[in-house]
């Protein structure tokens, strides 16, 4: 039954090569933790992606209850954490997942660096990876403001002051992020939009490029 359905679709859409492209490749022994336990260092990249998936899923559920305005933001987070079934778990996954994502990303970067995997022909993928790192830091910075508690507010205020001390561009960066003269209603709306639309879109694009390049170039050989 399932096979017949698959064949019906495949005959029309030719989907076989699409997933075969993803599935049909060999994985060498030196990155396989089943053969060498020390190969777990090659899992950091995949686990970073796993945490990113956790962040996207938990974030989608948080967005069902979060209200991005200065009157209700804090109360809506308090509500989803304290009143809602499983709310503390979902917010906990998103909150701790942010830190875990940075840690895994850092470990993955170090693995790539110390195994010299960024060398010819993989230079470009290293640059894509560093871009992913910056986008993730941006997601961390914008997400920190959203609960709209004192910690979030004053950390963002300090962060924007630091950004505004950049010569020439500082004032523009500050205006762009702050959206007005103070850290206030406009800032929260902007950070929300950046956090849930702009930066995730950039992240998904960069991740796509990262994975396509890995498939094209393969994993670097054993040391």
């Amino acid at each position: 039954m399932l096979k017949a359905m698959y064949e019906w679709i495949d005959e029309r859409l030719d989907i076989n090569p699409i997933w075969r492209d993803v599935a049909d490749h060999e994985v060498p022994e030196h990155v396989n933790p089943a053969h060498h336990f020390s190969a777990f260092i090659y899992c950091f990249g995949g686990l970073t992606f796993f945490v990113v998936v956790i962040q996207i899923l938990s974030g989608m559920f948080l967005a069902m209850y979060f209200v991005p305005d200065i009157v209700n933001a804090n109360a809506s987070v308090a509500y989803l954490q304290n009143e809602l079934a499983m709310g503390a778990i979902v917010r906990g996954m998103h909150h701790w997942g942010a830190s875990v994502a940075i840690v895994m990303l850092f470990l993955h970067t170090l693995r790539v660096f110390f195994t010299g995997s960024y060398k010819h022909p993989r230079e470009f993928n290293w640059v894509v990876g560093i871009s992913i790192f910056f986008v993730m830091l941006g997601l961390g910075f914008t997400g920190y403001l959203l609960p709209w508690d004192n910690k979030a507010y004053f950390a963002t205020k300090v962060g924007l002051e630091i950004a505004s001390s950049v010569p020439f561009l500082g004032a523009y960066i500050k205006t762009f992020l702050q959206g007005g003269d103070i850290v206030g209603a406009q800032t929260l709306a902007r950070f929300f939009a950046l956090h849930v639309f702009f930066l995730p879109a950039a992240l998904l694009g960069l991740l796509g490029a990262h994975f396509v390049l890995i498939r094209r170039q393969g994993i670097s050989g054993p040391l």
Binding site: N74, L137, Y144, W148, N150, Y153, F154, V158, G159, G184
Partner: peptide
């Protein structure tokens, strides 16, 4: 094991609050 922290609603007039960024900054 650890509930995510949530403080009081932001009060811009609070002058004694010690700001601190997230640990990775």
């Amino acid at each position: 094991a650890e509930d995510p922290p949530l403080g009081e609603i932001a009060d811009p007039t609070n002058t004694s609050f010690l700001p601190v960024p997230d640990w990775y900054f």
